[in-house]
Design a protein around this nucleic acid. Sequence first.
DNA 1: ATTAGAAATGTAAGCCCTTACATTTTTTAC
DNA 2: GTAAAAAATGTAAGGGCTTACATTTCTAAT
Lengths: 339, 339
Amino acid sequence: MAGSTIYDIAKKAGVSIATVSRVVNNNEGIADKTREKVLKVADELGYYPQAYAQGLARKKKNIIMVVVPVLSNYFFMEVLAGIQDEISNYNYDLNIFNVQSNGKDNMFPQVENIIKRQWADGYLFISTHLRDTELEQLQNYDMPITLIDESYPGMDSVSVDNDEGIEKAMHYFLDNGITRIAIISAMKTSKPGRQRIEGYKKALNEAGVDVEEDLIVTGDSMYRDGFSEQNGYEAMIKLLELPNPPEACFCTSDIQAVGAMKAMEEKGVQIPIIGYDDITISNFIGLSTIRQPMYDMGALATKKLMKRMKNREAKPEHKVFAPELILRSSTETDVKEEA
Amino acid sequence: MAGSTIYDIAKKAGVSIATVSRVVNNNEGIADKTREKVLKVADELGYYPQAYAQGLARKKKNIIMVVVPVLSNYFFMEVLAGIQDEISNYNYDLNIFNVQSNGKDNMFPQVENIIKRQWADGYLFISTHLRDTELEQLQNYDMPITLIDESYPGMDSVSVDNDEGIEKAMHYFLDNGITRIAIISAMKTSKPGRQRIEGYKKALNEAGVDVEEDLIVTGDSMYRDGFSEQNGYEAMIKLLELPNPPEACFCTSDIQAVGAMKAMEEKGVQIPIIGYDDITISNFIGLSTIRQPMYDMGALATKKLMKRMKNREAKPEHKVFAPELILRSSTETDVKEEA
DNA sequence: ATTAGAAATGTAAGCCCTTACATTTTTTAC
DNA sequence: GTAAAAAATGTAAGGGCTTACATTTCTAAT
């Protein structure tokens, strides 16, 4: 039973391999009697075309591959939900390929190999944060790629205006007369990390507030690239142990904010905090945040990719979602109490 | 550049395709000069062996495939983290295949097809909850499969003793003299759903407490099979609107418990609640829970699978983790206050 | 009964690799 | 310089499928 091939079926059913192929692929122009006969044998022998042989013979794989550096994070999970739901409208299978990002410069070769190896008919890159020069190189392979959470002129992309998000959060504080605002970041050194810190500084500068480097922190735990409760917890502890703690805090991910809130609770203080993402849990724990439409991003990117696979010539489209400030209890000035 | 083959390289480098193959696969017995020459051309032309051709020619794919019904849930995410970290010790790529579980009886055919198509060298099934008869059928294909969060005599498996988990939670309440205990479940009808409810009833019976059907609830929102904050929220609302609300609550997933806690807060009541899973966030929001070692399960299952791929004959091993009751503030009887 | 045309089936090449085996080239030992 | 052994390279088959094209079988019109 294990590993029967088209030849086995053909032999046992007394037809040619071409006929078997046509039957299992549901092609037309096959006599009903033949079809039945073949199907019966195929079922008995547990036959179904081998993916690799089929992929080689056709040029098509019927696979969409999602490429991500870190799987288990909330942002990815939500984006993926959107992809997953959208793709179920098409006749494609979903594969997820996890590239290792060991801090170093090793991501591009991995990604390039995936493309070279022609795993799929189209690719969705989530937060890979490759350099423009690298993406340019990838273009040479002439494969449909849609970028999520990043952008590059030559490829379709779906992203969020990060600067705007930070600005909104910062302005909320500044407009309320709060100026000593801390920022908790994951991976200060990464491209998006740096960007956010820049946005933070810019907002401060424009408001005529001096930047205090002490207020730009990250936790020490770098598991999951710092996108963890633990990291946020550690960062907030640092902030609260400062001689002069901040009056408010902006956090570059909700998950870190959860940890930060715990730290505040333990220390018995409560300063307004705004997260980033709006993961579903945030609504349930009263965390104010900058909403990124993660689910929609996944769904839209999938749509775009499908379109691109149909029409390779159209010029790249870039959708930039506007982030939204969602206010919940974590930014209420007076201490909230359970009734 | 797009889609150069071994023939292109061979021609341009003035060698045979066999030599090219040997070079790119890093075989030995190739003159350094030849190797360099070929590598140079390969690089220029952006060549790397096509996955499908290679997979066909060798019998090996160097792929481990994770098969899951629902990707975006916390349990899966944690298990996956374990798999991901463990697999990085081996020279295998990770692929995740998402089978659609539209409630109906359609999961087995999908899973069977994946196996038939020979996508990977080994498979990790997470929470697929197939029937024993179905798993038995799969065995005929003679593929290394390790089950996670379920078990079947004929296959390696890594799971948790669910009954024990429920028992521990129930006993905590019962031992504290609480008898009117509600259970919030996702998908009452699924195999694990039913199991848990049975465990719940059993614990009650053994304690001589009558089962009140009213106290067995689930939310109406069935997105993600009911494993969502929203579902828990809805369920708790139902409970609190009962003429005679429960004194305590057991929740079959932490994520639902988060929603349930929100509902309690809104209604201004606070009854002890215990969740299930111990997702990382639980520690940060003070949710008591039954800990499943999700990460370890993923890692161990991966190890087992690797072992199995080496030795196909060994008899199946079953690891059953003992769940652990973790007490946090959500089960403290007196109302906790921020300092 | 013939035969043109349609329908069904078969043949064989090709998709891109790997690898056993054959052949050629280089090295070593005398 | 020669022969034998070792190293490097090449040839060709095969992995399991699809599909253009060729062939056979059936249908329907005469």
